[in-house]
Design a protein around this nucleic acid. Structure first.
Lengths: 174, 174
DNA sequence: AAGATTCACGATATGATATAACATGTCAAC
DNA sequence: GTTGACATGTTATATCATATCGTGAATCTT
């Protein structure tokens, strides 16, 4: 049972640092321009295992002295998503840092509807199942991920209280 | 190769009628109140194989003399979705009539990014793959469907022109 | 180094999607 | 015929996203 760190207590600063290090490495390799704002936005996303809305990100930026203008956040988020450093979760209109940049290209998400945390996983079996389904219809699918709502291990067992884990209040959108 | 009707030329009035008949049957069976507005909204959705935004629906209602107030559309859409007569496609912020009400409870969608048409299919293999993935994490998923973007048979082969099928202009959002 | 090019960012405005809140109407049960 | 449940009317606002144009900094070219 390889519990995803997102659903276990752990040291956030470590996974944030790991995300940032990967991002820098990848940006270097691909010649991406990781400007201060883009870096900071990625860091903001990486500091939480809960997806953040564009306006949540904007709010943080504003607190740090940036102008409170939506394009500021959307541009950075679009850039990060386009380059595989972050993902958009349509179901939530929200964004999350990619936890395995450069590796997982078609992420699936497990979204806890109680505490809001999200785990990212490669799900080749899901993609295969979709391709089989699509093939029957003559449909040619782009790479497919899935956004699965449900209960994370902590909330399912009530260990952490379903209303939200201790870190909930401090960590982004409820 | 059981091509989905959504991706083949066919008589829309027939599938609309079939959807409406099923809806009435189900509503009767479950004691749902299919009011005129709800019926009309379902019919509007059923007349197209392209999903419609809430404001598209609202526009049609307005043309028919209803007030142009968002809650009018959202209430009907929410009702239809809650009772399995329509589905929301998060990826598009749009709605589509359920093509198999009472049968498919966890629909997957094949969304053509060229012509905008959407086919609905049961995809138990997808759900199983997600459940397996989730199980590894101790995550308990709600029933899962997938919203797969790609090219439908017509657009993939260029048979119908990728800019949109003949019916495109007449039928809802581009 | 000067000029050209590219692209990130600043700034304003607006568009698109969705819901809160409260009032009114309708119908059926009792 | 009153009550209660629920659908709808109405106003206002919240939330999410993009168009557009100007400015400035970095890089490229010569």
């Amino acid at each position: 049972m390889p519990h995803d760190p997102a659903f276990q207590p752990h040291d956030h600063s470590r996974c944030r640092d790991s995300v940032m290090a990967s991002a820098r490495r990848i940006a270097e390799g691909e010649g991406l321009r990781l400007t201060p704002i883009r870096l900071r936005v990625l860091e903001i996303l990486a500091e939480s295992h809960r997806p953040l809305g564009a306006y949540d990100v904007l709010e943080r930026l504003a607190e740090e002295g940036h102008p409170r203008q939506p394009p500021l956040a959307y541009r950075a988020l679009d850039f990060l998503c386009a380059n595989g450093l972050a993902h958009r979760i349509n179901r939530l209109n929200a964004f999350t840092a990619c936890r395995a940049p450069g590796q997982v290209h078609v992420p699936s998400f497990l979204i806890c509807r109680a505490c809001g945390r999200v785990a990212e996983a490669a799900a080749p079996a899901v993609a295969r199942a979709v391709e089989r389904l699509a093939g029957d219809e003559g449909f040619v699918p782009d790479p497919v991920g899935v956004e699965a709502l449900g209960l994370c291990p902590l909330c399912a067992t009530g260990e952490a209280g379903e209303a939200g884990a201790p870190e909930a209040a401090a960590e982004g959108r409820a």
